[in-house]
Design a protein around this nucleic acid. Sequence first.
DNA 1: GGCACACTGGAAACCGCTTTCCTGGAGGTC
DNA 2: GACCTCCAGGAAAGCGGTTTCCAGTGTGCC
Lengths: 330, 330
Amino acid sequence: MVTLEDVAKQAGVSLATASRVLNGSTRQVGADLRARVERAAYELGYRANIAAQTLARGASNVIGIVVHDLTDPYFAALADGAMRAAAGENLLVMVGTTHRDPEQEIAYVATLNAQRVRAVLLVGSRVADPGVTERLRGELDRYQASGGRVACVGQDLLGVDTVAPANYEGAAALARSLAELGHTRFAILAGPPHLMTARDRCAGFASALAELGLPEPRVIQGPFDRDGGYRAAQETGEATCVFAVNDVMAVGALAAYRERGIRVPDDVSVAGFDDIATLRDQVPALTTVRLPLQDMGARALELALAAGEEPTVEQVAGEVVLRESVRAVR
Amino acid sequence: MVTLEDVAKQAGVSLATASRVLNGSTRQVGADLRARVERAAYELGYRANIAAQTLARGASNVIGIVVHDLTDPYFAALADGAMRAAAGENLLVMVGTTHRDPEQEIAYVATLNAQRVRAVLLVGSRVADPGVTERLRGELDRYQASGGRVACVGQDLLGVDTVAPANYEGAAALARSLAELGHTRFAILAGPPHLMTARDRCAGFASALAELGLPEPRVIQGPFDRDGGYRAAQETGEATCVFAVNDVMAVGALAAYRERGIRVPDDVSVAGFDDIATLRDQVPALTTVRLPLQDMGARALELALAAGEEPTVEQVAGEVVLRESVRAVR
DNA sequence: GGCACACTGGAAACCGCTTTCCTGGAGGTC
DNA sequence: GACCTCCAGGAAAGCGGTTTCCAGTGTGCC
């Protein structure tokens, strides 16, 4: 491994000079020494040891992103947005996937703290478990105490900068749009009760229905993924309109109805949430609530990096997008 | 920031002892000292500084994965497989996305080298540009010379451990299956000519047709993504069977046909490649060549970590999966 | 009882780089 | 011409760990 010292020696200069030339510094270096150093570095194929730099500078150029599942396009889009923003700031990205295990999430924060990453982005729904939240908070406190920056995408549960999609309001708006089409008997594929995102969307939808004086929707819980939607769709009974709390579940529901010969939207209307790009070509096209996922990811990074005294919570509105998977009744 | 020295001081032991207790070592430490150190570390909330550890140990516990685009489910699946494998080995993962820019890929290798990561995984098609390949090779050489490990998923172009999907053979097998259904007039949505993956799949398909004595397929080039498939599908003319070199393009093609009132598979059969999980619920279900993407990602990491003198090239077979997007003719 | 040996604990060298502090020379001013 | 300032270059002190080497102690064996 060629070190800075090798370069300095070959160029016939001091370590300090070589460092100043190669790795940026406010100090000037004379033209000929500078050239000698650059030449030596090139000839030797020098690559700075970033671990050493990080140690000496006391600051790294890495950020960490913790997501639940990269193969879920929702997280992929958020992560991608954050990574583009990071690339723009010349930051490297460390990605951890928890596969929905909150313990893993806590462990990642600890590890990223040990790595002294500049910022940590927690992407994905918080869970409604005070114990877990408490311990996560503890780990974050420790990290922040040593100068780490944190932002999260999801719920404002941690007292850190947060990009919060308007799950409740978005679902409520969707409910009103669907009610306007004449639907009265609703079902909600609600996901798991401990996931705040699922819960908020479910609650928003249900409360909008209540405000309109419509009958209570049938709420069917289950996993937050495609198969969860598929299975929950078996139990929607008489409902003429089904709201899945995310697009991936909605696609599962579409598959279930298709198999059973139930036509969407003729027999039942289906709506999702998120507006996942990969699913835009579904047939029938999915009615959903669009979230600007990439922007949200990028914004979270910005929030984390901006110093901000008080934690900022940024609400991101969703936009109801009516497509062919729903139709008007009567 | 609490350092090991703080812990040692609080526990009343030497730095060496504290290090041995907390950060793993072959050496034993007496029970009471051990307990004192652990207690002090806990009380102070000590987190080892990994940059320092990396520097001192001369080896990091990080690997790098370079992909083209995380929001493309193909890469997401490969990356996920690799990340699961990495988690099993207790390695952290640094992910870089090139957005299909080969220069970015080279730059990432340089950066990851500077980070002294344990291994680098290059995921995604090589490009048919000798200049780029040459420079990438140079950067990899440098990295490997200093003990770095490299593996790649895609083509065996770099003289490193490679997991190589059988693009040519898979496409050929698909062509034979489709020919068996009676099709004779084919079109290939071929993607861009410089992408080896696209090129190999296209060539495999075409040559199998040739061997069967069938007329030459119409080859339509374009981008490797959904919109590329959508646009290319405008030009398939008289073909009764269209092969898109990946699933995402095939979905684009399906959308194009749908819009134009061309029924799949009644009017035209469509097949893709990869068997992307997120697209399994497409209607009509996509005929494709299944690749075990997650396994491939995991395997690439294994290859990289295993010392291997000679670079291993591991062929991964694809499995033709016939679904409703194709039908027999005549 | 004496001696070799295994083992635990600590001092200190080192990993590769940054940055402070110091030195000497060039240039400017009165 | 003396004095001051400014600046380029180098020596060396860290950054926070790991690990080698050494010393001291307790144990086993003859």
